[in-house]
Design a binder for these strands. Structure first.
Lengths: 255, 255
DNA sequence: CGCTTGATTGATGCCATTCAACATGGGTGG
DNA sequence: CCACCCATGTTGAATGGCATCAATCAAGCG
């Protein structure tokens, strides 16, 4: 309980920091032109003039790993594009059990437009940079720009598909299948280095929170996969998939 | 295995039936005016003329309980509004374990616009009526009518919120909490009769498929809740919530 | 070096599953 | 109307997978 309080305390300070770090004036206009994610983010289909207008209501902020940007249940006051970094979306039961309901990467959109409450917390897993918009201004802009709303719709539909696919994992897969599925998913989304090693953006506890398992079970499953020669480990976060085919079999239940 | 094949067989026939049942010409124009869900469905914000145009590309079809309209993984060729009835959205693992990823009611929207594949199957739980649109025509109409896209976006955002909340249940709640949560959810969405009894649209097996449990566990939990006097049963599908407060406590983990 | 944090490993117990038998009740045909 | 049937649901006993509790290990850091 004390620990929970400390976390909440620290997080409040984080949120205050985020607000304080907000510069008083937009991305500064020049940012969009050299934005790393401008062709993937929801603003991609806007023309130069429209992007300039959106620019004026947006602000860049930096986050440190561990900082929380939005809190489950709070009134929804901010939305943002992720410029760089990885963040988690999470919800908790009253007694503190946590479930990670999504992991977002660069060019993804976060926050809840067109709604009163933020349905889940958003926390940076790595250092991150956001292009932040106040809700009122963003909602208004979106309603006036169907191209933006359309991209937002596409993105939301994709998110929904992926989320529903994850429900199958949570409801019906066992620990072995869950871990194998996650590793394959990460392999698809993250770029491997020249040795074929991918750097997991998640700690063991966070993997457990994504999969609906405990940290010990995750650790055992990963250990088993290593012993079987299906994967190889490189430090705490590094993983190399040695036998992709077998790993795929395991993700589907062939043990 | 034989049974699974039979089901698949029957379902193919169902799909054929759905297509065959499609009349050659729209809802007939007059349908929208007296549509039961026109104020709740995504067409609500269209004016009369626009609704007429949408009408021309839509077709009413009736479904019998058990019929499947769309198949997981098939190319997405249809979308629809639910006029009446309850349907389930489901996915399965290769070896036949099923997870219900959503339950939809009258005025809800089904199908996958703006995407190649249908990510989950859609099956009628009760007899149902749909207002069915071919994908190409619907996508085109939506893109030309931001008001429609906006409502679709709102709906999709709501779906995503609800789906993510359900992930917490699947990943972190135990059987008691799962069943209690579902009963409360049903109580909220379904209208009770004058005795306070709600008719569940789901069989025990389907409840199990929603909650990621087995049918036996569901049966035991419901039995326990009855013995504790928290709920009362009326036939196989009827449930009356006797002690709502206690049931809410159980949904959150206070046993 | 001691301390902290994150990960692994081990021992034990519990809850949900599994396998099985049995009950119920809605529908049908004699 | 009743006997029968089959699908659906309930109950029981045994198993096992994952959680829990706890100790140990490894790595980073002041």
């Amino acid at each position: 309980m004390d620990m929970r309080f400390d976390l909440a305390q620290r997080a409040q300070e984080d949120a205050a920091f985020v607000m304080a770090a907000v510069p008083s004036r937009g991305c500064g206009g020049q940012y969009c032109d050299r934005c790393e994610v401008r062709d993937q983010a929801i603003c991609a289909d806007l023309d130069e003039k429209q992007r300039g207008a959106l620019n004026r209501i947006g602000r860049r902020v930096s986050l440190q790993a561990g900082q929380t940007v939005m809190w489950e249940g709070d009134s929804s006051t901010l939305v943002a594009n992720v410029i760089e970094g990885t963040l988690k979306l999470s919800t908790s039961t009253g007694d503190g059990r946590e479930q990670i309901v999504g992991v977002v990467y660069a060019s993804d959109f976060i926050g809840r437009p067109f709604g009163a409450r933020t349905p889940h917390s958003v926390t940076a897993l790595t250092d991150a940079r956001l292009c932040l918009y106040p809700r009122g201004a963003f909602d208004g802009f979106a309603r006036e720009h169907p191209a933006l709303e359309h991209r937002l719709l596409q993105r939301t539909l994709d998110d929904l598909d992926r989320t529903r696919a994850w429900m199958l994992l949570l409801g019906r897969k066992n620990a072995r299948e869950k871990v194998a599925t996650l590793l394959l998913d990460m392999r698809r989304r993250l770029r491997a280095d020249r040795d074929g090693v991918i750097e997991l953006p998640l700690s063991r506890q966070q993997i457990a929170d994504v999969l609906g398992l405990t940290i010990e079970t995750v650790s055992r499953q990963i250990g088993d996969l290593k012993r079987m020669g299906v994967i190889a480990l490189a430090g705490r976060r590094g993983v190399r998939v040695v036998d992709e085919e077998r790993l795929e079999g395991m993700a589907e239940g062939e043990h």
